[in-house]
């Protein structure tokens, strides 16, 4: 993470968002679309791609203009740029698929307030040249898309017995209705976070001596992760 002191390769820039700083599973950012539109894998993919598009192009433009933008009006400028790309995405989705547009509803317009984007603009794009900024934004976008897909696939498989609209278990599958309702989003997100926390704790069990009095899963969910991530975690939330 120390861009100023160490040369960071493009690959590392890309991987940061996909894995180490995954916006959904590590930073827990952008929860509003994450919970709301992931009723199916296709919706999740649509939302992820739309957000990635906005991320990459607004970060690119902001990075290009970073020397011209006075710091007093930088947030206003960022928001204007982000809002522009959100509007573009809005038109393009309508042109590609009205069905997807109806399914995503107001959440397309709400990309503008997704804190991942403003967070990236302020924390990264404003301080780096266009290429690394765009690569880093692409990584974040891919990481976000992966996070949404992880939720969307589980919810669609359990909630409808399908994946990307393809029936998996035959006609007699009993859908778990709760999974396509709002609580299902929370359950599945919680499950994924639990899984990653458990995995991170197992991985770090060696040198960092485990908690003397091991906590049950739920309470312990965040403890080991804080040790591994570099505290950047919650800055943009």
């Amino acid at each position: 993470m120390t861009m100023s002191t160490k040369q960071v390769t493009n690959m590392e820039q890309l991987l940061e968002g996909i894995w180490k700083q995954n916006p959904v599973f590590v930073m827990v950012l952008g929860m509003c679309p994450t919970l709301a539109v992931t009723v199916s894998a296709f919706n999740a993919l649509g939302m992820g791609v739309a957000t990635s598009f906005v991320l990459v192009f607004s970060c690119g433009l902001i990075s290009l203009l970073r020397k011209q933008i006075p710091k007093e009006v930088r947030i206003a400028t960022y928001i204007v740029i982000i809002a522009t790309f959100v509007t573009l995405v809005d038109y393009i989705i309508q042109a590609v698929s009205l069905a997807l547009y109806d399914a995503l509803g107001a959440f397309i317009q709400l990309i503008v307030v997704n804190c991942i984007i403003l967070g990236r603009a302020e924390a990264h794009a404003a301080k780096n040249p266009p290429l690394p900024a765009m690569v880093n934004a692409l990584g974040m976008g891919i990481g976000f898309t992966i996070g949404l897909l992880a939720l969307g696939s589980v919810r669609e498989i359990l909630g409808a017995g399908k994946l990307f609209g393809i029936t998996l278990f035959g006609e007699h599958f009993q859908p778990w209705v709760v999974m396509v309702l709002p609580p299902g989003g929370f359950f599945v997100l919680g499950g994924w976070l639990l899984l990653f926390a458990w995995w991170a704790r197992r991985k770090n069990a060696g040198p960092r001596s485990p908690h003397p009095n091991p906590l049950p899963e739920g309470e312990g969910a965040n403890v080991p992760l804080r040790g591994t991530s570099d505290k950047r975690g919650h800055h943009g939330a």
Partner: peptide
């Protein structure tokens, strides 16, 4: 099978997650 799902949900969501 739905009864079994209910049983797991009861213990995991209702109790274990909060610490027993």
């Amino acid at each position: 099978w739905m009864g079994a799902v209910a049983g797991f949900a009861a213990i995991w969501l209702g109790k274990s997650l909060f610490g027993g």
